[in-house]
Simulated scan of single mutants.
Amino acid sequence: AWELTIGATTAPRVIRADAVVLATPAAATRKLVQAFAPAAATTLAAVESASVAVVTFAFAASELPPPTGSGFLVPPIEGRSIKASTNSSSKWGWLARQAPEVTYVRASLGRHLEEATLQRPDAALAEIARRDLGDILGRRLPVPVDWHVQRWGGGLPQYAVGHVERIELVRNEIATFHGLEVAGAAYDGVGIPAVIGSGRRAARALAEAAGLRD
């Protein structure tokens, strides 16, 4: 069994569990395992990450109809602050049906080793994103009905050459501890489907180790 201390540092609580999945970022997982899995900790310490900010705009559909297509990526060579955009109202039909009077567009900012871009206030980031979007779409975008900035510090792991082999090393050492698995964006992919798959893989491994079936 595993014994874990959780909760606020001012009011810690100890729980016991037969199995644990560490679904934390690489840096946090490193700290959690370094006392008993030093090789895995050292390997996880080498996984770099990028910070990201996602700006969501709500435009009046009468001023900006939903753009064609689901979105686009912006390569670094373009010299833009945004690195991708999602035409949310076009990509997800349920969103368009729920709010036909609004066009939702998202833009993400923050590339690896370019954290300075994200040091601006939310309003400045939103204006930069709106300007870049307008330039790429070929028109000046209207003033949004509303906007929101969500920041993810160190939220995007960077996969360097040899990543697969390094993650295999991590999992091999973690596997020597019964009832422990790792999961998350640092291992098999950063997209939502990949992260879900990582969690399911960890759950299956624990179930098989316990002699349980799906």
Rank of each mutant, 00 (worst) to 15 (best):
S51F: 08
S51M: 06
S51G: 09
S51K: 08
V52I: 15
V52F: 07
V52R: 08
V52S: 06
A53R: 01
A53Y: 04
A53D: 07
A53P: 00
V54P: 00
V54I: 12
V54L: 09
V54D: 04
V54Y: 00
V55Q: 04
V55I: 15
V55T: 08
V55H: 05
V55E: 02
V55Y: 02
T56A: 11
T56S: 12
T56F: 05
F57E: 07
A58M: 04
A58L: 03
A58H: 06
A58P: 00
A58I: 03
A58D: 08
F59N: 02
F59M: 04
F59C: 02
F59E: 05
A60E: 14
A60D: 15
A60N: 12
A60S: 15
A60P: 00
A60Y: 00
A61Q: 12
S62N: 10
S62C: 05
S62V: 09
S62W: 00
S62A: 15
E63P: 00
E63L: 12
E63H: 03
E63S: 13
L64D: 06
L64R: 00
L64K: 05
P66D: 09
P66R: 10
P66I: 09
P67V: 07
P67E: 14
P67L: 11
P67C: 12
T68G: 04
T68N: 01
T68L: 08
T68R: 14
G69Q: 09
G69N: 10
S70N: 11
S70Y: 14
G71C: 07
G71S: 05
F72P: 00
F72V: 02
F72A: 02
F72R: 01
F72Y: 11
L73C: 04
L73R: 13
L73Y: 15
V74P: 01
V74R: 09
P75G: 12
P75T: 13
P76C: 06
P76S: 15
P76M: 11
P76K: 15
I77A: 15
I77D: 09
I77N: 12
I77S: 14
I77G: 05
I77W: 12
I77R: 15
I77H: 12
E78H: 11
E78Q: 14
E78I: 05
E78G: 01
E78Y: 14
E78R: 13
G79D: 09
R80K: 15
R80D: 03
R80L: 10
R80V: 02
R80S: 10
R80P: 00
S81C: 01
S81F: 08
